[in-house]
Simulated assay, not measured.
Amino acid sequence: MKSILTFFLVLLAFCLSAQDYPESYMCYKAGSDIAIDGLLSDEEWGKANWTSKFVDIEGDKKPKPKYKTRVKMLWDENYFYIAAELQELHIWAKLKQRDTVIFYDNDFEVFIDPQGDNHRYYEFEINALNTIWDLMLAKPYRDGAPAINAWDIKGLKSAVKVYGTLNNPKDKDKKWTVEIAFPWEVLKECAYQGRKPKSGEQWRVNFSRVNWEVEHKDGKYHKKINPKTGKTYPEYNWVWSPQGVIAMHQPETWGYVEFTDEIVGGKELTPRIDQDYPAKIELIRLYTLEKKMYEKYGKYFNKITSNYPVLIETTRKQFLISIQSASGKTWYINQESKLWTE
């Protein structure tokens, strides 16, 4: 019976749509050094595959983005490399001070959860001026964690190339490209065993692009105002792996990046499917129900209907939920949405 259930859940994982199972990417090793100049002209980038095009953060609920965005990834012994291409007819940026809220401009964002446990993850934002905001989160905002803005990625390299003219509304631009080199020496701080990934291991990663409606006045770009409200129109949020809601800080729905020692341009590999993913999402569903019931009744409940055999332990202010996944592992989640297995 257990083998039949395992087969069914694994088969289900393969059949899930892009909105039900996250995007995935095989990250190959670079065979030579990569110059971080924003040009994406290194031979190694030419061998790497693009991700799928970005979609709206809510997925199929919303129309496709009007501008194409896509990403490539590579790694070596020292860095995790990101290359991004963002098509745009009018490229603008105003913010120049590091660690300001970069998404007030049009920006490109990277999210990295090394252990895939929803806790201790990184966020990085960059605009067309190559102004950056790097921060760490101990846990998601939904669980009460503030952003640690004082945290900096020492040894980071980044560059931007604008194909057009920056902040000039008189013409039409083509795109801007971004290159980033994240040093493992920093990323490994929140990684399993305090190290960079081994071949075959997966990290949870996602990318986001914030894009505002703009208009031209007095030779400058201005965010477009909704005449009915007197406020700026809400920004577009375009992402690699859709979230289902307008919220980037739910790492359980980020994409899977699998690292391999194979050199880029050689053997073609396919990222493995996480057969435990359905169990993890069920734990998130149960976590969400517990939170809602606590808000309504002032307590957690130790009995909730689930398609999985589930064990719930509660106290007045805490809970621990465990279920067995298709792989036979027991997975846990607590009141701060931390996911882990033993």
Score class of each variant (00 low, 15 high):
Phe259His: 13
Gly328Ile: 04
Pro234Asp: 14
Gly298Lys: 04
Gly255Arg: 00
Lys220Ala: 03
Lys224Asp: 03
Glu290Asp: 07
Leu320Gln: 07
Lys296Tyr: 03
Thr315Cys: 02
Arg316Pro: 04
Gly328Val: 07
Asn307Arg: 15
Asp276Gly: 04
Thr315Arg: 01
Trp254Asn: 00
Thr260Cys: 10
Leu283Ser: 11
Pro251Trp: 01
Gly328Leu: 05
Lys228Phe: 10
Lys231Cys: 13
Tyr277Thr: 11
Gly219Arg: 11
His216Lys: 15
Trp212Leu: 00
Glu258Leu: 06
Val264Trp: 14
Glu215Ile: 12
Lys291Cys: 06
Ile263Arg: 06
Lys317Thr: 10
Ile304Cys: 03
Leu286Gln: 02
His222Gly: 06
Asn211Lys: 15
Trp240Tyr: 09
Glu213Leu: 05
Val310Met: 02
Glu313Asn: 07
Leu320Asp: 14
Leu283Ile: 06
Val245Asp: 10
Tyr297Met: 02
Glu313Cys: 00
Thr305Lys: 15
Ile281Gln: 15
Asn307Ile: 05
Ile281Lys: 15
Gln250Trp: 08
Tyr277His: 08
Ile312Gln: 08
Glu262Trp: 02
Leu283His: 14
Thr260Phe: 05
Thr288Gln: 08
Ser306Met: 01
His216Asn: 12
Pro271Met: 00
Ile273Tyr: 15
Ile284Phe: 15
Ser322Met: 08
Lys224Cys: 01
Ile263Phe: 12
Lys228Gln: 03
Tyr308Glu: 12
Thr288Asn: 13
Glu235Lys: 11
Glu313Val: 09
Tyr287Val: 03
Thr270Tyr: 14
Phe259Ser: 13
Lys299Thr: 00
Val264Gln: 03
Ile284Ser: 15
Asn211Thr: 15
Pro251Leu: 04
Gly298Leu: 07
Ser325Tyr: 03
Val214Leu: 01
Lys291Gly: 03
Ile304His: 13
Gly230Leu: 04
Leu283Gln: 12
Ile284Cys: 06
Trp254Met: 07
Ile263Gly: 09
Gln275Trp: 13
Glu262Tyr: 13
Leu311Glu: 10
Lys220Glu: 12
Ile225Met: 03
Lys296Ile: 00
Met248Trp: 11
Thr315Ala: 10
His249Glu: 13
Ala247Phe: 07
Glu282Pro: 02
Thr260Val: 05
Lys303Glu: 08
Gly230Tyr: 06
Tyr297His: 13
Trp212Pro: 09
Leu269Glu: 09
Val257Tyr: 14
Glu235Leu: 08
Lys292His: 09
Glu258Phe: 05
His216Ser: 11
Lys228Ala: 02
Lys296Glu: 08
Gly255Met: 04
Ser241Thr: 13
Ile321His: 11
